[in-house]
């Protein structure tokens, strides 16, 4: 294939990856920014979202779009509930101690993964996309649903931005992040905010998973990559920065695809990985600093 179309394809692929990644990473970033908790089980919330999406779509069984839409509502809610329970029973009792929460969320990772293996099984299972059409470009065909994913993710991101920046709930979250003690002094229910943020973070991962599951498949080990990538995006983007997270997701999503135009795929992955490391070495606070809201 010629260079131009090749680059176009790599860009489109990068955009799809970046869209879902941005949603997932935003969840991690919120939890990290507000609660200072490194949630190692974040990838498992993603996986849980995909698995529940399969289950819902399977139960509904009617037109794929119906099942998908049901999954889009049910999966995040259920995952949010699981996260809220985990927050209440474990993280809160740990006082959000950074090291203890890492171990606790590793434990949570095992529990969720095993629960999925025991109930959902070891096979990869597909969910039918709500719409299935192929866009024919002069050089290659492309999935219409993938373009839809970009649009949906962008819309969801705007929603989150609106909640954070324009609503009372968002104000409470930002206040808690800024200074927990002062927030408490201003009668902000910090405990409830923490519970809400943790659930919201998990829900964002679940939404990302529901969007991706018609492209990939639900599998009980699928949480690994989103976790790693989200971590990278959160750190590169600068902690707690919404804008930074989105831009970093784009950079990460694109770099892999574009570098693979020029190098062998595995070498491209190695270079992209080293690039992230070098960026952080040069700018330890991430590309967009810690100050940006």
């Amino acid at each position: 294939m010629d260079f131009g179309p090749y680059l176009l394809l790599a860009t489109m692929e990068g955009a799809v990856g970046a869209a879902v990644l941005a949603l997932t990473a935003l969840g991690l970033s919120l939890v990290f920014g507000v609660m200072r908790v490194v949630n190692v089980a974040h990838g498992e919330f993603f996986m849980l979202g995909a698995v529940i999406a399969w289950w819902v779509a399977h139960l509904v069984g009617a037109h794929p779009a119906l099942g998908f839409l049901a999954a889009l509502v049910v999966a995040p809610i259920m995952v949010g509930l699981v996260a809220a329970v985990a927050e209440r029973l474990v993280l809160r009792r740990l006082g959000y101690d950074p090291e203890a929460t890492i171990v606790a969320t590793i434990g949570l990772l095992y529990v969720i993964q095993q629960a999925a293996l025991s109930t959902f099984g070891p096979d990869a299972r597909p969910v039918e996309p709500p719409v299935d059409f192929r866009i024919l470009l002069p050089w290659f065909g492309y999935s219409g649903y993938k373009l839809l994913v970009i649009a949906a993710a962008a819309a969801l991101m705007l929603c989150v931005w609106w909640v954070l920046a324009r609503t009372r709930v968002g104000l409470m979250m930002r206040a808690t992040r800024f200074d927990r003690e002062t927030a408490r002094a201003f009668a902000i229910p910090v405990d409830r905010v923490y519970g809400g943020v943790f659930a919201l973070g998990a829900m964002l991962a679940a939404v990302g998973a529901v969007l991706i599951v018609p492209i990939q498949q639900a599998h009980y080990l699928m949480g690994h990559d989103p976790l790693l990538l989200s971590f990278i995006v959160v750190i590169i983007g600068g902690l707690g920065s919404l804008r930074g997270t989105v831009l970093a997701a784009l950079v990460i999503g694109m770099s892999d695809g574009v570098i693979s135009v020029f190098f062998s795929p595995t070498l491209a992955k190695i270079l992209a990985t080293l690039l992230v490391a070098i960026v952080l070495v040069i700018r330890p606070t991430g590309l967009f600093g810690a100050r940006a809201a």
């Binding site: 179309p5 692929e13 990856g17 990939q216 693979s260 795929p265 595995t266």
Partner: peptide, 16 residues
């Protein structure tokens, strides 16, 4: 010969 990295979850970008 098109080797796919072990961590890949999407393949379209390799088809060109």
């Amino acid at each position: 010969l098109i080797p796919i990295p072990p961590t890949e979850t999407s393949f379209t970008r390799h088809f060109p």
